[in-house]
Design a protein around this nucleic acid. Structure first.
Length: 682
RNA sequence: CGCGGGGUGGAGCAGUCUGGUAGCUCGUUGGGCUCAUAACCCAAAGGCCGCAGGUUCAAAUCCUGCCCCCGCUACCA
């Protein structure tokens, strides 16, 4: 591995239109914080950067809903999220925001730089324009009927009913969400980054990456295999970083373009705060900086392809050494949903519970290789049986023993037996073993290794039976306790990255006046408590929790799940429709004149159908149930006025009707008596 | 449709790259100990490693097909 001189760590900039929940924390923030805290204890030069992502359409929508300005929205959530992170011990060196002047300036410089180099290409395209509001409509501001499922309230980017992704111009009868008017198509010009042209360079760079998680590299390769397309870096919107060119009024940088630049601008602000405005360059423009982005899996394409492509095109920035993206965290078996309030919010949690047990549990179930599940009952079990019973109780039994038998001081270490040496060796090995796991982004493993030290310490205590030797062999008892205290001391420091608050408490209990977070990780290998050292006050390190404390939380989530309107859109078919609505659907009899399988598609058939004078082509997913030959000549019922769609690149002008039962059996609708094709069905 | 990830005792996971007696934590059962937060320590029971084929002396691990779950240039880690 390359010999890096310093480390720059970033966590995904949280979007400032809502509060932070457990999923965010588990995916992008807690792992980064553990990593950074560890690196600091290793006495490495590390800077940890984060901040609020404050641009983009959703914020303007949120502002409009509440009748306030976008700035008010982001001000609110920037402050709240920053405070929430602080409560959970996120040790950012700087928490910036993308609405800051520095960020606007930095983003514009990046844009100008790439523009001057001729990186961008300009394209003119048709977009929907609301004449009354005098603005181009973002995808989300356009509503209309979904061309795939007919859902009347589909958005311009996606139909929430059938989940298909759309473009606004595909919608049937589009209306502006702003004014309710029918928008018109109007030309607009945008800057695009030609990712296809940069693909080779991105691939070459990726080929040099080592130690990337398979799920991350797999996803990246999937993107690259499909081939990268040109991607717009500007939008017609009045909230964001202005495009710094003449005649670009009303155009801002697309939020995906400016957000990652936020890492750079926040580092600049950090440097200025340190009184050394040029310092950011050391971290961003020196090859011997190790850049690590902590993100969730939804962000992989931005951090592994698009942002690097931008940086490559610029040429003067370091590229990420690793992007240890996490999968998703579920909650009590279900996906988190902010809109349904199905989440645990940091702000709520902090009011009721201790922070470290959550940090511990989330790190223990970190979705490193696959989605994981937060279960309150497991959280309680982990806290009680691991933190309290194994780690906390070991500290407690040791310190209580020292207090009762050795007046709260460290007894002398005498001759060592086999068990003593084994225990000391276990402690001495721990920092390297745990450290290696952390460096490898294996936080779950790090936690297991850490807890195993406490387990070994408990076993050692049991096996040496100091409560017996205290009467029969005081010197041996002293040695045992000396080593147990040594273990407590080591554990206090080893827990610091994951359990920062408890580590401080434990360190004080060991009688130190210093800050545990200022210690050196490697000292665990050889540090010793001097004989006679006065220990601190014995306190309970981790409180045992009771079921009744978490019951309301479980109950709350259950209730949300049970709410009927939360079974989104599935209930829709039961809604009754008017006769007029039915009349919109034109059903006709058609005769199949030709049919063939669609290549590389197991289920699709392409058919030519005859309806009176008219012949057209349709595509249907019935190949598993009907062979092409058997279909020719058959008369079927089709929806004649369904909007044309392309299915695997083949035009389909209509949809045939078929019944399907629970077992998946399929049966085409036919005719009871023969009728001429083209006849209408009513 | 395609692509990426995952499917291992009751629960949660490791092991899969580099085939060779299936491991850890919790839970269950039995025992030990009593310094300690009714904590700690030891032992046992419990798995046809998603399904079906194949390669091999040998497959959780390699190959092929299938099934199920999560995600996929979106406002969400």
């Amino acid at each position: 591995m390359k010999n890096y001189k310093r480390i720059l760590v970033t966590s995904a900039l949280p979007y400032a239109n809502g509060p932070i929940h457990l999923g965010h924390l588990a995916g992008a923030y807690l792992p980064a914080d553990i990593y950074v805290r560890y690196q600091r204890l290793k006495k490495r030069d590390v800077v940890y950067i984060c901040g609020s992502d404050e641009h983009g359409v959703p914020i303007t929508i949120a502002a409009e809903k509440k009748g306030v300005s976008p700035q008010q929205i982001v001000d609110q959530f920037h402050a709240r999220n920053k405070a929430a992170f602080a409560k959970f011990g996120m040790s950012f060196d700087y928490y910036g925001r993308t609405s800051s002047p520095m960020h606007h300036q930095t983003s514009q410089e990046m844009f100008i730089n790439l523009n001057d180099k001729g990186v961008f290409i300009k394209k003119t395209e048709q977009q929907l324009y609301d004449a009354k509001a005098r603005m181009f409509l973002p995808d989300r501001y356009v509503k209309g009927e979904c061309p795939h499922c007919g859902f009347p309230e589909a958005y311009g980017d996606q139909c929430e009913k059938c989940g298909s992704s759309l473009s606004p111009t595909e919608l049937i009868n589009p209306i502006s969400a702003l004014t309710g008017d029918k928008p018109q198509q109007k030309e607009t010009e945008h800057w695009y980054i030609p990712l296809g042209a940069l693909q080779k360079q991105v691939e070459e760079w990726l080929a040099t990456r080592q130690g990337w998680k398979p799920n991350v590299m797999g996803q990246v390769k999937s993107w690259l295999n499909e081939g990268l397309a040109d991607r717009a870096v500007t939008r017609d919107l009045n909230w964001g970083v202005q495009v710094p060119l003449p005649h670009a009024e009303g155009k801002v940088l697309y939020v995906w373009f400016d957000a990652p630049i936020g890492y750079i601008s926040a580092t600049k602000e950090w440097a200025m705060e340190k009184g050394n405005p040029e310092l950011w360059k050391t971290y961003w423009q020196n090859d011997d900086t190790r850049l690590v982005h902590f993100i969730g899996k939804d962000n992989i394409v931005f951090h592994c392809i698009m942002f690097p492509a931008m940086l490559i095109a610029h040429g003067n920035y370091v590229l990420p050494d690793n992007v240890p993206a996490n999968e998703f965290l579920n909650l009590e078996g279900n996906k988190l949903s902010t809109s349904r309030n199905y989440a645990v919010w940091l702000e709520d949690y902090a009011e009721k519970f201790d922070i470290d047990p959550l940090r511990y549990y989330l790190a223990a179930i970190a979705p490193e290789t696959k989605d994981s599940d937060f279960v309150w009952q497991e959280y309680l079990t982990r806290n009680n049986s691991e933190l309290a019973d194994i780690l906390g109780n070991f500290t407690n039994r040791t310190l209580a023993f020292a207090k009762n038998q050795f007046t709260g001081t460290v007894p002398a270490r005498g001759d060592l037996d086999e068990l003593d040496r084994e225990m000391l060796s276990t402690i001495a090995r721990a920092p390297d073993e745990i450290g290696a796991a952390i460096e490898n982004f294996e936080f779950r493993k790090a936690l297991v290794l850490f807890m195993n030290v406490a387990r070994a310490a408990n076993k050692y205590f049991n096996d040496q039976e100091p409560w017996r030797t205290v009467k029969q062999n005081p010197a041996k008892c002293a040695t045992t306790l000396n080593i147990c205290l040594h273990a407590c001391n080591a554990l206090a420091l080893l827990m610091a990255p994951v359990l920062p608050f408890s580590a401080a408490k434990a360190w004080a209990m060991m009688g130190h006046a210093t800050d545990v977070h200022q210690q050196a990780w490697d000292d665990v290998r050889h540090m010793e408590l001097p004989t006679g050292h006065q220990l601190g006050r014995v306190e309970i390190l981790f409180r045992k929790m009771e079921e009744k404390e978490i019951e309301p939380e479980i109950e709350r989530l259950k209730n949300i799940q049970a709410q009927p309107d939360n079974k989104p859109v599935v209930a829709e078919p039961t809604a009754s429709i008017s006769i007029d609505e039915l009349a919109k659907v034109q059903l006709r009899v058609a005769k199949i004149v030709a049919a063939e399988k669609v290549e590389k598609a197991d289920k699709l058939l392409k058919m030519d159908i005859q309806m009176g004078d008219e012949q057209r082509q349709i595509v249907a997913g019935i190949a598993l149930h009907y062979s092409p030959e058997a279909l020719i000549g058959k008369k079927i019922i089709v929806v004649a006025n369904l909007q044309p769609a392309k299915i695997r690149g083949i035009e389909s002008n209509g949809m045939l009707l078929a019944a399907q039962d629970d077992q998946g059996n399929l049966s085409l609708l036919g005719l009871d008596k023969d009728v001429n094709d083209g006849a209408s069905v009513r």
